[in-house]
Design a protein around this nucleic acid. Structure first.
Length: 646
RNA sequence: GCCGACGUAGCACAACUGGUAGUGCAACUGACUUGUAAUCAGUAGGUUGAGGGUUCAAGUCCUUCCGUCGGCACCA
């Protein structure tokens, strides 16, 4: 006779085995309606699961995170059922839950069209109306293989075959549709409803590009219609800040078909912003103890053999070009060049650490399908630096890098960081001793900086452990920009040395690091983060001065000159247009400050100020204005970043 | 690279089953001299991404290439 203990400690006693759903029903019909699954002694189970002994039970509803997952998973099954009804020849494969929704992969010859998607969605709604019970059953593994083979579901059979023999598998049946699944699922299809199919795409069977391609249907599912709508609105908002769209609208950059894919053209306004970013970057690096380097764009092919890139990176490198019987190749990375400068003379331990930074433009032949606006391009500028140091200097150097990274990312307005420490993979160069020591150095630096981090065991590169830092943008998306990477390989390959105190030659440690990642990509992230409304210090133009009639043209120009003299990026809009028209245009251009010069302003020697957010600050003297602007610039990005947030 | 969709004026988009390529904004010209998110009128602008084919006739159908978009795979 089961005694059911609920999360609040209350108990219910039954004189017969009960299902989760029955308990929920007992508590209240409202709860029963919202119930999608149950948690019995910590195990997530179907709401129809029978409990026959004493147990801890919590009812999982569509409001719980786990309940939402159940809904999404069940909606994926619903999709598969609808597809099987409409396209009986389609074979089902897998259908997992993903962020905000789910997908299901099918093997079919027919290509799903947008119209098909609509028909499938319609059929899904019909099945919801049928309110079919979802029934769980158990089948021995071998029987299950034969069962799915019998149905002509070869992919399913293959999945089951990869499960160890002797295990019993659970199957879920709704109407005529049966699928292998761990569950749990909603008790009946009527529990589903707030979903939408979003897109069709190709996807490789088992994620392997040497396998055949399946057709994947993506969908999103939510507890109710309202949340579904909110999600769709969120997608629209994200689309509005798409850097490709804003890049065109605000005339910041372009990609030119005539030049080839993945090659970025910076227009005047984009270039202004880039200059601000780069000036700041160089200045901070010099202050932080770096020296700046410039290196060529091409080098002899042999160099890339020495560095090893011809071996493990050649697929991404542009083909060699021949000149005077010698082969040159475009650089995909800056590191070998910095190594050459190091090797240009004999280094002493007294020289170390050497910190060398370069905004180095590299070219990588990314696969055509990978290209994406500024986020994934073929020619880009890394904010690269290499630190050559002694083993015992690792920790201190990493700490310095972390300081600079956090400061710089904060300056650009990011305050949420996610940090990963990746350790030694199975295949790696360098002794265990040096790996341990280096990894410890990275770990200690993170601890000293007070950064919370997660460890990606075995996730490091073959040549050294690394720290990656992700930032979160204004709408919660995460971007990996910064990477700090130890390298035991290149110093070896190039036989780098320094003379130590003992007079012997030793091998230095090399640290690669990029803080912004690439200037192009970081710029794209900034555009989306700010929706083109760059903070004052970054804005391509900070101030526009607009006259009301020709009479104030001279005054407006004087104001512009005065502002420029103080280092502001200002321009005049003297077009013979109504002030409302100019305000509209310049606001859409996201110029932070709009100054208006009419007869009143000329007479008083003041200026009327309006912000791009539509705030009318009234009239003020130029001095008051520039004070305000200077303060706004100085204060920006000085906020204390959140360090403990993982 | 793979699967699919798409490519029409500077931009955003129209053009029923093949039958004279249009609209809005921008540009240009003129008028208006204007007070906080669009003044009015006029003018010009296109070998429909490129090449090949089918047809009396192709923006529309077929084909190759290029590019873009959504995914997959790969990745700063």
């Amino acid at each position: 006779m089961p005694v059911i203990t609920l999360p609040d400690g209350s108990q219910r006693e039954y004189d017969h085995p009960v299902t989760v759903l029955e308990v929920a029903q007992d508590i209240g019909p409202g709860l029963a309606k919202a119930t999608v699954a149950g948690k019995v002694n910590g195990e997530l189970v179907d709401a129809t699961r029978t409990i026959d002994e004493d147990a801890q039970l919590s009812i999982v509803t569509n409001k719980d995170e786990e309940g939402l997952e159940v809904i999404r998973h069940s909606t994926a099954h619903l999709l598969a059922q609808a597809v099987k009804e409409l396209f009986p020849e389609a074979q089902v494969t897998i259908g997992p839950v993903i962020e905000d929704g789910f997908y299901y992969d099918f093997a079919v010859d027919h290509n799903f069209t947008p119209e098909d998607l609509e028909a499938i969605e319609q059929r899904m709604k019909e099945i919801v109306k049928r309110d079919l019970p979802v029934e769980r059953s158990v089948m021995p593994r071998d029987e299950a293989v034969a069962f799915f083979r019998g149905l002509g579901e070869d992919y399913k059979a293959e999945i089951i075959e990869s499960i160890p023999q002797g295990e019993a598998l659970s199957l879920y049946k709704q109407g005529e549709f049966i699928d292998l699944c761990r569950g749990p699922h909603v008790p009946s299809t009527g529990k589903l409803g707030a979903f939408k199919l979003t897109k069709v795409a190709g996807a490789y069977w088992r994620g392997d590009s040497s396998n055949e391609m399946l057709q994947r249907i993506y969908g999103t599912a939510w507890p109710d219609k309202k949340q579904l709508k909110q999600y769709l609105t969120r997608l629209e908002e994200a689309e509005k800040r798409d850097h490709r769209r804003l890049g065109k609208e605000l005339d910041l950059f372009s990609l030119q078909e005539e030049a080839g894919g993945g090659l970025v053209f910076w227009h005047p306004k984009g270039a202004r912003i880039r200059k601000v970013i780069e000036d700041y970057w160089r200045e901070r690096h010099l202050e932080a103890g770096y020296e700046l380097l410039y290196t060529p764009h091409i080098a002899l092919e042999d160099l890339w053999y020495t560095s090893g890139h011809k071996g493990f990176y050649s697929e991404s490198m542009y083909a060699p070009m021949e000149e005077d019987g010698q082969l040159y190749q475009l650089k995909p990375m800056n590191c070998p060049f910095h190594v050459l400068i190091y090797k240009d003379r004999l280094r002493s331990y007294r020289d170390l650490p050497l910190r060398w930074a370069e905004l180095g433009t590299v070219y990588r032949h990314e696969m055509s399908g990978a290209l994406h606006g500024l986020m994934r391009v073929r020619g880009f500028t890394q904010d690269d630096a290499h630190i050559f140091c002694r083993e015992e200097q690792i920790e201190e150097e990493i700490l310095r890098i972390l300081d600079l990274t956090i400061e710089m990312l904060s300056k650009f307005g990011f305050s949420d960081f996610e940090v990963d420490l990746s350790t030694r993979p199975d295949k790696a160069v360098g002794s265990d001793a040096i790996w341990d020591k280096a990894t410890e150095g990275l770990r200690n630096a993170l601890e000293r900086k007070g950064l919370a981090y997660s460890v990606d065991q075995g996730g490091g590169a073959f040549y050294g452990p690394k720290i990656d830092i992700k930032i979160q943008d204004a709408i919660g998306r995460k971007w990996q920009c910064s990477t700090i990477q130890l390298d035991f390989n290149l110093p070896e390959r190039f036989e780098m040395e320094y003379v130590a105190e003992d007079g012997e030659r030793h091998r230095p440690i090399m640290i690669h690091r990029a803080l912004l990642g690439s200037v192009e990509r970081f710029f794209g992230i900034l555009v989306e983060h700010y929706e083109g409304k760059f903070p004052l210090w970054l804005a391509p133009y900070q101030i526009v001065v607009m006259n009301i009639t020709d009479r104030q043209a001279g005054y407006a120009q004087d104001v512009v000159e005065a502002l420029k003299k103080q280092g502001f990026r200002a321009f005049a809009d003297l077009r013979n247009e109504k002030i409302g028209f100019k305000i509209r245009e310049r606001t859409l251009e996201r110029v932070p400050y709009l100054l208006i010069a009419g007869d009143q302003e000329v007479a008083s020697g003041r200026i009327s100020v309006r912000t791009r957010s539509g705030e009318d600050l009234g009239s003020m003297t130029l001095e008051t204005l520039t004070q305000r602007l200077n303060q706004e610039i100085a204060e920006f990005g000085q906020m204390q970043p959140k360090l403990e947030n993982v």
